[in-house]
Design a protein around this nucleic acid. Structure first.
Length: 202
DNA sequence: GGGAAGATTTCCT
DNA sequence: GGAAATCTTCCCG
């Protein structure tokens, strides 16, 4: 491993605190062709049973959401159309909370990231979205259920952000009041934060 | 066993 | 700004 992973205790803080604490941390994925990593610059918290936007709303327990009920520090990946999205499981065991990683700033493996995202010309557009960064770092369904405290996928200390902002989450327009909860966090002014999509008003 | 929906991205007009 | 891409899971017959 090229970095020292965060201890398991790091993941055992309250979910909203962890969502903020993850900003500036380094997400690392080691693959046969080499390691790629990026600083986390944007996250979204999903607060389990009481959060209508969460897959685990109402303690819905399925093959897909099963890992959300596990202890904090596990990897929750799922497919969205043609893309993989990655979450950090948080909360106590049987409390199905998780944090979606929405954007990273590339650090290691720039050539790997470039080749995996060869269709994209602008560097900034290679990792500024949840489905983009998984392709850039080669995070797949094979990582589902893995622990973030050891290779090949883990999170290490990075830098402490100057300023952090929060606001409504993205892409969950049909979830009632849950769409207004300010559980999206990002590093102020960072160019790799994903573009804010217009929230539908009715 | 079929059909629908989804925490997205990309290409085309 | 809109639609297609194209996969898995879940729910309902």
């Amino acid at each position: 491993m090229i970095y020292q992973p965060m201890p398991i205790e790091f993941y055992q803080q309250p979910t909203l605190d962890l969502a903020k604490a993850l900003l500036g941390c380094l997400l690392v994925k080691e693959s046969p062709e080499g390691a790629a990593s990026g600083y986390i610059v944007e996250t979204e918290a999903y607060m389990g049973a009481g959060d209508r936007a969460a897959h685990s709303f109402g303690n819905r327990r399925t093959k897909r959401t099963e890992i959300m009920f596990a202890s904090a520090g596990h990897v929750y990946t799922f497919m969205m159309h043609t893309h993989t999205l990655v979450n950090v499981v948080s909360g106590l065991t049987n409390i199905p909370e998780a944090i979606l990683i929405r954007a990273v700033e590339p650090c290691d493996g720039l050539q790997l990231i470039k080749s995996r995202r060869h269709r994209v010309k602008q560097a900034v557009n290679r990792t500024n979205g949840p489905g983009k960064l998984t392709e850039a770092l080669n995070i797949t369904q094979e990582d589902y259920g893995r622990l973030l405290t050891e290779a090949p996928i883990y999170i290490a200390a990075g830098f402490v952000p100057d300023q952090v902002e929060s606001g409504p989450r993205v892409g969950i327009d049909n979830t009632g009041d849950a769409r207004f909860y300010p559980w999206r966090y990002w590093i102020s002014g960072n160019p790799y934060v994903s573009k804010t999509r217009k929230i539908k008003e009715c």
